[in-house]
Amino acid sequence: MPEDIESREADTLTEDIARLGSLEKIIQGWDETQQRTVLALRNGWEAIYRECLRRLIRTVQNAPQGATGLREAAADPYVYAVLRTLSLVRPSLQERIEAALDSVRPGLEGHGGNVELVELRPPDTVVLRLLGSCHGCPSSSLTLSEGVEKAIREACPEICHIETVGRQHAATAPIGEGTEQRISPFAIGG
């Protein structure tokens, strides 16, 4: 599929999801009985859609070239979004890694740092970059092993290798006095 078509479809999906989010905000203002009614209606339709898609997937998988067709279909952003919403496919490896990084970011940000996923090398390697005060910090190895790597390995047991790279840009986050005494947010009692 041409890149501009994929980009437009992704934009449309983002807009559709934003519209649903707006509707959910409206419903949050309703009384509890109305909210439960809407939730029950949504859950009922989702159960029907989930079972329908399970049966469709099972039928297609048994057809010649069915598994290939399903993989191609799941690559479509709309199809993938629906399958993920209905828990019919697992989150991708990249999504699970990003979720693991999101889980440790508050601790890193509290110390003026961050981490970014630079590259995913399937099947078992992740390349990361420490940012801000974490880059070059004496406690960065502890931050990596006890925070970042631990979170990734729990979310993605198939990851065997976690590598880090340095900054590509010379710009650094402002570092205050006492930087040499920084402690990893993952240090015991840190």
Rank of each mutant, 00 (worst) to 15 (best):
E119V: 03
Q34K: 09
I162D: 15
E95C: 00
E158F: 06
A187Y: 01
R19F: 10
L108N: 00
V60L: 14
R36G: 02
Q28T: 13
T85V: 00
E32W: 01
I162Q: 15
P106V: 02
L128Q: 00
L23I: 09
V60Y: 08
E98T: 12
P106H: 03
S87R: 15
R71Q: 04
R55S: 07
P122H: 00
S92H: 06
D11Q: 05
E3F: 15
Q65D: 11
V165K: 12
R50C: 10
C134A: 06
Q28L: 10
A155D: 05
E146A: 13
T14Q: 13
H111C: 03
I48T: 14
A18E: 15
S145P: 05
A74T: 12
T179D: 15
C137T: 07
K150S: 14
L101I: 05
L23F: 04
C52F: 14
P138F: 06
R58D: 13
A67V: 15
L128A: 00
R129S: 04
I17T: 03
L39I: 08
Q168K: 15
G178S: 10
A99W: 08
R42F: 10
D4C: 12
L117Q: 02
L88S: 02
P122E: 06
R84Y: 11
E180C: 04
A74C: 14
G44D: 06
Q61W: 07
A47D: 15
T12M: 13
L70W: 05
L70M: 12
T172D: 10
A40T: 10
V165N: 11
L130M: 11
V38S: 05
M1K: 11
R182I: 02
V104M: 01
A75G: 11
P106E: 02
I159Y: 09
R8M: 06
I175W: 11
S22F: 07
P77C: 13
S139Q: 09
P123E: 05
V60P: 11
L130H: 03
R167P: 04
R19G: 06
R84Q: 12
L86H: 00
I17L: 13
T12C: 08
T37R: 15
F186W: 02
I183D: 05
R84G: 07
R42K: 14
I188W: 02
G69S: 06
R96V: 02
R54E: 14
A63R: 12
I27Q: 00
P138H: 07
V115G: 00
A47C: 04
W45C: 14
E6R: 15
E109D: 03
A67N: 13
E98N: 11
G29N: 03
L117C: 01
P174C: 09
Y80M: 08
S133Q: 11
E24A: 07
S7F: 12
L144Y: 09
S103T: 03
S87G: 14
E177S: 14
I5T: 10
L142G: 03
G178A: 09
G69V: 04
T59P: 06
A40I: 05
V82E: 14
E163S: 05
F186L: 01
E6H: 13
Q61V: 09
A151V: 07
A187K: 04
Y80S: 14
L88A: 04
R84I: 10
T164N: 01
I188F: 01
S139M: 05
D4W: 12
A81F: 07
A47P: 04
I162A: 12
A47L: 11
E177I: 15
A151Y: 09
E163P: 06
T164A: 12
Q181G: 08
L70P: 06
T37K: 09
P106K: 00
V115H: 03
E51A: 05
